[in-house]
Amino acid sequence: MDETHPLVSAWRDHLARDRRRSAHTVRAYSATAARLVRFLQHHLGGAVDAATLAALTPADLRAHLAARRGEGIGNASAARELSAIRGFLDFHGAAAPRVRGPKVKRGVPRPLSPDDAVSLGQTVAEEASDPWIGARDWAVLLLLYGAGLRIGEALSLTGAVLPLGDRLAVTGKRAKTRIVPILPQLADAITHYAALCPWGVERDLPLFRGARGGALDPAVVRRAVRRARRGLGLSERATPHALRHSFATHLLGRGADLRQLQELLGHASLSSTQVYTAVDAAHLMDVYRNAHPRA
């Protein structure tokens, strides 16, 4: 995909230089802008300039989003794409056409889909005020979704956990310690954050720091997630703790048994873990109703 178009190049430079967005965010938003420009070149049959963007209609933007949905992106990804497009248009002085974002089905508590969980974490990171804070928030949320930690457990980690291996000792409720596996992507995210953190990493101090260098307050993470879920159109139930629920439900759906899940989550009683069988069954019923021709 060609990202050398002048409109896209100017947007990319603005994000990197003026907004100080992370390299990941700059790449993602530039790719979104390039997709829009390329679509408009075919859709409108001509060159695309600032005047073209200013003349966009809701129908043009809906056609682009429909094409992206046809490529298989989910609701959360479509919402993120629409948000990035609005920023791109605003930068070039074009008012974004009024297009309603994708609807998200609401109802009883449900785990986030893998796509929604990742999109939530990425959006929180992208909207951070500084690249190191974005890296921090991404690492924290990955610990919840990728390792099933409670937010308090993640924020109680100290610099002593570095360098990371393929497993991590976590102290949970009632001072009970458990061992959780660490995926390479998660280890990379934490290592990247540690390299960017302006406060350094010390063995006896919290690994995750707030903007002023103190221990990161969980309320800061919850507020960031709240802002991101609104932009993505996700349910109010899309909280940091919902990422831990999603971790458990997705593992159960992939064949993990309850005893294994109990150990990974640090539940004292198996009855606490059994709730996920009901959640997983409810999710399967949703899939059945949405997919079966006779449902």
Rank of each mutant, 00 (worst) to 15 (best):
D60E: 02
V124G: 07
L120G: 01
S113T: 15
S9T: 15
T52H: 06
E127D: 14
G45C: 09
L82Q: 12
L61A: 09
V108F: 08
V8C: 02
L112N: 07
T57Y: 00
D115K: 11
P97S: 11
A117L: 05
V99Q: 01
L15Y: 00
W11L: 04
H64G: 04
D90C: 11
W11E: 07
A79D: 06
R98C: 03
P97H: 07
L112F: 05
T25F: 01
R21D: 04
S77M: 06
E127Y: 00
F39N: 06
R20T: 07
A125P: 01
H14M: 13
R69F: 05
L40E: 10
K105H: 11
R12S: 15
R17M: 04
R110A: 14
R17H: 06
T57M: 02
V108S: 11
G46C: 11
A51H: 10
G101C: 02
A76I: 04
L44P: 03
G93H: 08
L7H: 06
T52V: 09
A63E: 12
W11C: 00
T123D: 07
A76V: 02
T52R: 08
D18F: 01
A79P: 00
D116V: 02
K105G: 12
R100E: 15
T57R: 10
T25H: 04
R27F: 03
E127S: 13
G70P: 04
D49M: 06
V104A: 14
Q41L: 03
S30L: 06
A34Q: 08
L7Y: 02
S83A: 15
R20V: 11
Q122A: 10
Q122I: 00
D18I: 07
A117N: 06
V37R: 03
D90E: 15
I73Y: 01
V124S: 08
G72M: 06
A31N: 13
G74C: 10
R38F: 03
L15E: 04
A78C: 07
A78H: 01
L56K: 05
A67N: 02
H14S: 13
R27Y: 02
R17Q: 10
A34H: 05
A128S: 11
A76F: 01
D60A: 04
A94R: 09
T32A: 15
A50S: 13
L44N: 11
D116L: 00
A78I: 00
F39M: 09
R110V: 09
T123E: 13
H42F: 05
A63P: 09
R69S: 09
L7M: 09
A117D: 09
A16W: 02
G107D: 07
A96G: 07
S113D: 15
G70Y: 08
Q41C: 08
A79W: 03
A96P: 05
K103C: 02
L61E: 05
A51K: 11
A31H: 11
V99D: 01
D49I: 08
L7C: 05
L112K: 10
L56G: 01
